[in-house]
Amino acid sequence: MSNVLPEVINEILTRLPVKSLMKFRCVSKSFKSLIDSPKFIEAHLNQQTLKPNSNTKLILNAHNLFSVDFNSICNGVSTQQPIELEKPLKQLHRPTQVLGSCRGLFFISNNLKYNVVVWNPSTKMFCRLPICPTKPPSRTPRGLGFVQICGGFGYDDSDNGTTHMINLP
């Protein structure tokens, strides 16, 4: 067996599930920097979306968040029980709201004034977002006792793949 070329390693790793990749970051320095690089993450996402329905999960938003294999409910009969996701911000008395999702990332909150995070359910990593209180325009309609939420979450590929989020309280 000859020495393995980096481009071949790259081809193989894009075909691995996230759990294996999180484990193989520990193989060597070059493996870690390859797996952590935005270019690899992009290639992995593209490769995974090529496989029709193989790994697609549906996220159910009740008081907590649940995941179910898309395939298992395709025929109208669910063969699998939804699995509760271990997520950040889990609190007994506060439901989690999903404010948006994009390219495998979720924008969730259980308290829009204090707790807003971007979360990746596959890597279980999350990032708390800074809250910038802004005064809404005076004519913004408000429900009684509720704060009106306008927010968005999107992907900007012109900016090296940075994910942008706008949240207007």
Binding site: V4, I9, L16, S20, F24, V27, S28, K29, F31, K32
Partner: peptide, 19 residues
């Protein structure tokens, strides 16, 4: 490779651990 241990992957792909 999917379920292999880190040690097994190093050996299978002939990678020296530099961490």
């Amino acid at each position: 490779l999917k379920n292999k241990s880190v040690r097994a992957v190093r050996e299978m792909l002939k990678i020296t651990n530099d961490l």
